[in-house]
Computed example of a mutant assay.
Amino acid sequence: MTQLKENTQKHIEVEAGDLPLHCPMPSMLKWNAHPRVFLPIEAKGEALCPYCGTKYVLKGGPVGHGH
């Protein structure tokens, strides 16, 4: 069973399995805290939610670069 997390954390690391990335994430306790917005994290390896300011960082960096 997935444990829900309070979405008060402002820096979250995500993995490739979390893509396509959107905020709020399904595992967040207040999943409906603001409208769902998809975040383009693949190219830069990080993204900032325009609604709540949460910064997402992709573990391993940008997708498809140098591997």
Rank of each mutant, 00 (worst) to 15 (best):
Asp18Met: 07
Tyr56Ser: 00
Glu13Lys: 15
Cys52Gln: 00
Pro24His: 05
Lys59Asp: 03
Gly64Arg: 04
His34Asp: 09
Lys44Arg: 15
Pro62Glu: 06
Ala16His: 13
Leu4Gln: 12
Gly64Pro: 05
Leu48Tyr: 05
Tyr51Arg: 08
Tyr51Phe: 15
Cys23His: 04
Pro24Phe: 00
Ala43Glu: 10
Lys55Ala: 10
Met1Trp: 07
Pro40Thr: 02
Ile12Glu: 08
Gly45Asn: 00
Glu46Gly: 09
Pro20Ala: 06
Gly53Ser: 08
His65Pro: 04
Gly64Asn: 07
Leu48Pro: 00
Leu48Asn: 05
Leu48Asp: 03
Trp31Tyr: 13
Pro24Met: 00
Arg36Gln: 11
Glu42Phe: 08
Leu58Glu: 02
Gln9Tyr: 09
Ile12Val: 15
Ala43Leu: 12
His11Ser: 12
Ile12His: 03
Tyr56Asn: 00
Glu42Asn: 11
Ala43Asp: 11
Leu29Arg: 15
Ile12Arg: 07
His65Phe: 11
Lys59Thr: 09
Pro24Asn: 03
His11Phe: 13
Met1Ile: 10
Tyr51Ser: 10
Lys5Ile: 15
Lys59Ser: 09
Leu58Ile: 05
Trp31Met: 14
Gly66Ser: 14
Pro35His: 02
Lys5Trp: 09
Arg36Cys: 10
Gly53Leu: 00
Gly61Met: 02
Ala47Phe: 01
Lys30Gly: 09
Glu6Leu: 14
Cys52Asn: 03
Cys49Ser: 01
Leu29Glu: 13
Met1Leu: 11
Ala16Cys: 13
Glu42Ala: 13
His34Asn: 04
Lys59Trp: 02
Tyr51Trp: 08
Ala43Ile: 02
Gly66Trp: 09
Glu15Cys: 12
Trp31Gly: 09
Cys49Ala: 08
Phe38Gln: 10
Cys23Pro: 00
Trp31Lys: 12
Gln3His: 11
Glu15Trp: 12
Gly17Leu: 14
Pro24Glu: 01
Met28Trp: 13
Pro40Phe: 06
Val14Asn: 01
Gly61Ala: 05
Ile41Gly: 01
Glu15Met: 12
